[in-house]
Design a protein around this nucleic acid. Structure first.
Lengths: 180, 180
DNA sequence: CGAAATGTGTAGCGATTGCTACATATACAT
DNA sequence: ATGTATATGTAGCAATCGCTACACATTTCG
């Protein structure tokens, strides 16, 4: 038995649920601690600082989302680019992933403000999503790497338009950019 | 002479510069007041509450950006869709507009967290940008409205990828989605 | 002139922030 | 048994948050 079999994973789990529900930017130590059933004192004790805690929490959530993505849409090629984009966007808009998208946009926002940790985590998330996305492209897609990157741009742009209530416009854009 | 010829415009100008430089989410009353050469006390006096202040400030900045957009790229049709997208993205990445893009992503982030005021302002900004964008499409573009919305999605997706250091991927996506 | 409206500085309130000092309880190793 | 590492509660600190009470000036208007 290792000496450090404390909760850590449990704590991350519960804090992750709290962040998914209440947002990342507004997450302060005491509410996080309450959600995890502990105290701010112990959070600092376990994670050294809030920055380190947030970093580890975001990595944890990124892993969680990757698992859920593969569970929701296994890596089977779609029938067409349009179907691929449509399926993914529908999935990300659903109740299971919308909270992740909110956190994602928080990460993006912090990254643009100059936070190197958010920048690094965001980069890793995009890279993972890119790999998952590439495996779902229709068989025989020309230049799958560039196509996947294009779809990544369209999906993220859709998230932005969704945020300000322009989902219809985003839908039309997808249909226009991936007609078949 | 109207009785209310106080600074208001000046104050908004200086606070806008501060927000463009230091970000929106981290903007609190005292730094904003210092930037405007007044006190938090007076900001509340003039704008009733911080929420109302931020709302008015964002509307002010949205108008400013619209003006600067028209000044930087007058509404002359581009030679091609690719040229249109490339020119605009290069402009938005430049020093004059990057600060606006940071604020824009802050607005998007707050809107996804449920802020109705940010949602409303973000929606208006997108609508204005959409109109400006439509006027720059090449002459004879098929279905200019849908095309402009598609380009909007691609541009916003590019901003997101830029935020996490994936500008190269975004560039390739643009070249792929708007080949000519 | 005098009253009323408009503007501004000083000081502070209660809440929250990340984080720490101190004491203490438990567990494990020697 | 005893000492040392691990774990945790209590209390609080200095800073910052949005906002307000109070006093005082200046201007406007009847």
């Amino acid at each position: 038995m290792p000496r450090k079999t404390i909760n850590r994973e449990d704590i991350l789990e519960k804090m992750g649920a709290h962040v998914l529900e209440h947002g990342l930017n507004t997450a302060s130590l005491r509410p996080l601690a309450q959600a995890a059933g502990t105290s701010d004192r112990m959070l600092i004790y376990h994670f050294e600082s809030k920055d380190a805690l947030i970093t580890e929490l975001l990595q944890f959530l990124a892993g969680r989302m990757a698992l859920q993505l593969e569970a929701a849409l296994p890596p089977e090629p779609s029938a067409s680019l349009n179907a691929c984009a449509t399926e993914i966007v529908a999935l990300l808009r659903g109740p299971a992933f919308k909270p992740y998208m909110r956190v994602w946009l928080d990460i993006v926002s912090s990254a643009t403000q100059g936070s190197t940790t958010h920048h690094a985590i965001g980069s890793a998330i995009v890279e993972g999503f890119f790999d998952w996305l590439q495996a779902r492209l229709p068989v025989g897609t020309d230049d799958p790497e560039t196509t996947a990157r294009a779809m990544l741009v369209v999906i993220d742009g859709t998230l932005v338009l969704d945020a300000v209530g322009q989902s219809d416009a985003a839908n039309r854009a997808i249909a226009h950019l991936f007609p078949i």
